[in-house]
């Protein structure tokens, strides 16, 4: 009897696993990235599009996609800032922006991020109002505050999944 119960469980487990394997058909529904608490702290809108912030040395990378089908979004404006070896978050010189490439990818060479206010973290923004100046702005604004796994990390990768406004 217990053997039969075990078999039933296994059968149910296998059926569950099989249904998960079938998930990729539904995986086209890419969930949007919610704004993080504190993400907009010390944000200074309108930072210029730059090749590099300050002297560089730390690589912020990422990708911007559309919610739902996950299509990459090209030419979207992403701004980033952080407490670095060159200045505080609030300093103008700590802010810079870039545009995503054809695959929706972006990267920014910026000064090494150092822990501030208790955590080593960066700030990134997709600001619809600012993006409008670059032919975009049709997505909802998202502010992120990702943590670095270690204060010694030299890079940080951040994913944006945007929802149409």
């Amino acid at each position: 009897m217990s053997r039969l119960t075990m078999n039933r469980r296994r059968l149910l487990g296998a059926a569950g696993a099989a249904s998960l394997v079938g998930m990729p058909a539904m995986a086209q529904s890419v969930a949007p990235t919610p704004t993080m608490r504190g993400g907009a702290n010390n944000y200074r809108p309108g930072a210029p599009i730059v090749e590099r912030i300050g002297g560089g040395g730390f690589l912020m990378t990422g990708r911007v996609r559309r919610a739902g089908d996950g299509a990459p979004l090209a030419g979207r404006r992403i701004q980033m800032w952080a407490h670095t070896i060159e200045g505080h978050e609030r300093d103008w010189a700590s802010h810079g922006a870039t545009l995503t490439d054809a695959e929706g990818r972006f990267q920014m060479d910026m000064p090494q991020i150092v822990p501030a206010f208790g955590q080593a973290h960066g700030h990134l923004a997709y600001d619809a109002d600012e993006d409008a100046a670059f032919g975009g702005g049709e997505f909802q604004t998202v502010f992120l505050r990702p943590l670095m796994a270690s204060p010694n990390d030299k890079t940080l990768n951040v994913e944006f999944v945007l929802v149409e406004a």
Binding site: R37, G38, N41
Partner: peptide, 13 residues
């Protein structure tokens, strides 16, 4: 903004 978030108990830290 970080201190205001902390005082309002809505800080991410």
């Amino acid at each position: 903004p970080d201190v205001i978030d902390a005082l309002l108990f809505r800080s991410p830290t």
